[in-house]
Simulated scan of single mutants.
Amino acid sequence: MYVNKKYTYALYLCQQYGSISAMPRRRPEEAEQTRRTILRIAGQMCAQSGYDQLSLEDVATAASVTRGAVYHHFENKKGLFLEIVRSELDAMGAQILAAAEVAPTRWDALVAGCREFLRKSQQRGYQQLILTDAPAVLGIATWNELDYRYTTRSLVEILQELKSDNAIAVSDPEASAEALSGAMNQLSRWVAAGGSEDSAIGTLLMLLDSFRR
């Protein structure tokens, strides 16, 4: 039987306060803080044990909120997981950008960003959330869309700039970015499975050098 979780939460509030209008009003910043807390704790749980083991009841308990509050902010378990993935990819994108911004040239920025990805993506959370669970739970089409939005698009932009500078010999920066992104994801999986990080970085650098004139 289908159960409307938001309706159930509204019914719970009515039982507690007599009516929804009588319930204490929370400031927007308090609601946002609750949402961030739920997201952070759920992300930690999912990174540790995987999506299949994630329980919204456990999330609510760990976040010191009701299960209804979890459903107030996130439609369901999959919706919560989607936001976890977005948050993780956004953090990865920010770390890559920070590494690239201090590089002296565009080429050095590309190399620094790629190396930072390979290093940071070895963290258990990224491996579990992004490279293992996300494609299976969200579907490969959604995963590809998110991967492009948060990481591959930056590769496209810098390769386009390098092509404009006549610094690389690629005919299609977008195709090259997709190939590079796929190679880095696979190298990350390989290292996580026991491969040599030094060998992975060496292979990555050879791949990048093949783009140069």
Rank of each mutant, 00 (worst) to 15 (best):
Gly125Arg: 03
Ala60Ser: 09
Leu11Gly: 01
Arg27Met: 12
Phe117Ser: 07
Ile84Tyr: 10
Thr37Asn: 15
Lys77Leu: 02
Leu155Phe: 14
Asn4Gln: 07
Asp209Ser: 14
Thr61Ala: 14
Asp198Trp: 03
Gln127Val: 09
Asn76His: 14
Thr151Met: 11
Ala200Ser: 07
Thr142Lys: 13
Leu146Cys: 07
Glu75Ile: 08
Gln48Ala: 15
Thr34Ala: 13
Ala141Lys: 12
Leu118Asn: 08
Lys77Asn: 03
Glu161Ala: 15
Thr8Arg: 14
Leu180Thr: 09
Asn76Pro: 07
Ala183Leu: 15
Asp133Ala: 09
Lys77Val: 00
Arg119Gln: 12
Leu138Val: 09
His73Asp: 10
Ala136His: 08
Ile168Ala: 03
Gly18Glu: 02
Leu131Ser: 06
Glu161Lys: 14
Leu204Trp: 09
Cys14Met: 13
Thr151Gly: 01
Arg36Pro: 00
Ala183His: 09
Ser64Tyr: 07
Leu129Arg: 05
Val111His: 03
Thr142Leu: 12
Leu138Lys: 01
Arg106Gly: 01
Ser154Ile: 02
Ala63Gly: 03
Ser164Gln: 15
Leu146Ile: 10
Leu97Asp: 14
Arg115Gln: 14
Ala69Cys: 11
Leu159Lys: 01
Met92Thr: 11
Asp133Val: 04
Glu32Ser: 09
Glu83Ile: 05
Ala141Pro: 00
Thr105Asn: 02
Asp108Ser: 13
Tyr9Met: 06
Leu155Cys: 05
Pro173Ala: 10
His73Asn: 11
Met206Tyr: 07
Ala177Thr: 04
Ile130His: 06
Gly50Ala: 07
Thr37Asp: 12
Ala177Lys: 10
Ser55Gln: 09
Gln186Cys: 10
Val156Ser: 03
Glu178Lys: 12
Leu204Gly: 04
Gln53Tyr: 06
Leu129Pro: 04
Leu110Thr: 02
Ala167His: 08
Asp198Phe: 07
Ser199Ala: 15
Ser196Asp: 11
Ser154Met: 12
Phe117His: 11
Asp147Lys: 10
Lys78Gly: 02
Ala100Cys: 04
Leu118Phe: 06
Val137Ile: 15
Ala22Cys: 07
Leu146Glu: 07
Glu32Trp: 03
Leu155Gln: 06
Gln33Ala: 15
Leu56Gly: 12
Leu208Glu: 06
Ile96His: 00
Ile84Lys: 01
Leu131Thr: 05
Ile20Tyr: 06
Ser171His: 08
Leu205Glu: 15
Ser181Cys: 13
Trp190Met: 08
Trp190Ala: 04
Asp133Arg: 10
Leu80Pro: 02
Tyr9Gln: 09
Gly195Pro: 04
Ile130Thr: 13
Cys46Ala: 14
Asp133Gly: 04
Thr151Gln: 14
